[in-house]
């Protein structure tokens, strides 16, 4: 089997999250949600420690992680880009916007750029249909995004890269 390593502090963090949910395996999705918030993504070793703490199997944890598109096993970029593919955004050209991001960043959905700066994902409806098509970069919302806006949005993050 694949050898897995994890740091003491990470284990303590996962244990804390699991305890918040009484180590109840029925709360697996909530636990994973919090763990992903804490670590940015859900690598194998995090899933393993979650499984141990909730007394469930690694396969079942992975089953849930692989089912929900929200969960990711790939580290997100410092600026995670989310493109809404909900109905309203879709009909107003979200797919073309998404393709523009893919082309400019040279990555696919679910991937992260080599410099760990940007990652690209799609989601279903952020509840701002009046602004369709909507793009999120981190917590920041961009509305009525056109193809021309895409490069502009990326440029906004050009100078602010923390080194």
């Amino acid at each position: 089997m694949i050898p897995m390593k994890i740091s003491e502090t990470s284990v303590a963090k996962i244990e804390e999250i699991c305890r918040e949910f009484d180590n109840d395996k029925g709360e697996l999705i909530n636990v994973l949600h919090k763990a992903q918030n804490a670590f940015g993504y859900l690598p194998e070793e995090v899933q393993k420690v979650v499984a141990q703490n909730l007394n469930t199997s690694l396969a079942q944890v992975y089953g849930v992680v692989s089912f929900y598109s929200f969960f990711t096993m790939v580290p997100k970029g410092r600026y995670p880009i989310n493109i809404c593919m909900g109905t309203a955004c879709y009909v107003r050209g979200a797919e073309r916007v998404l393709n523009e991001f893919k082309g400019l960043l040279k990555i696919k959905v679910g991937e992260t750029t080599k410099d760990d700066k940007f990652s690209l994902s799609s989601l279903r409806c952020v509840g701002a249909c009046g602004l369709a098509p909507v793009v999120l970069v981190g917590e920041k919302v961009y509305g009525r995004v056109t193809l021309d806006n895409v490069q502009e949005i990326l440029d906004e993050y050009k100078e602010t890269v923390p080194v």
Partner: peptide
Amino acid sequence: VGALSAINRGFMSVVAPAFEM
């Protein structure tokens, strides 16, 4: 035993061990 689980979704869903090992 917990070796197998249904993983992925839609057309991609299949039964496999964790991480498709």
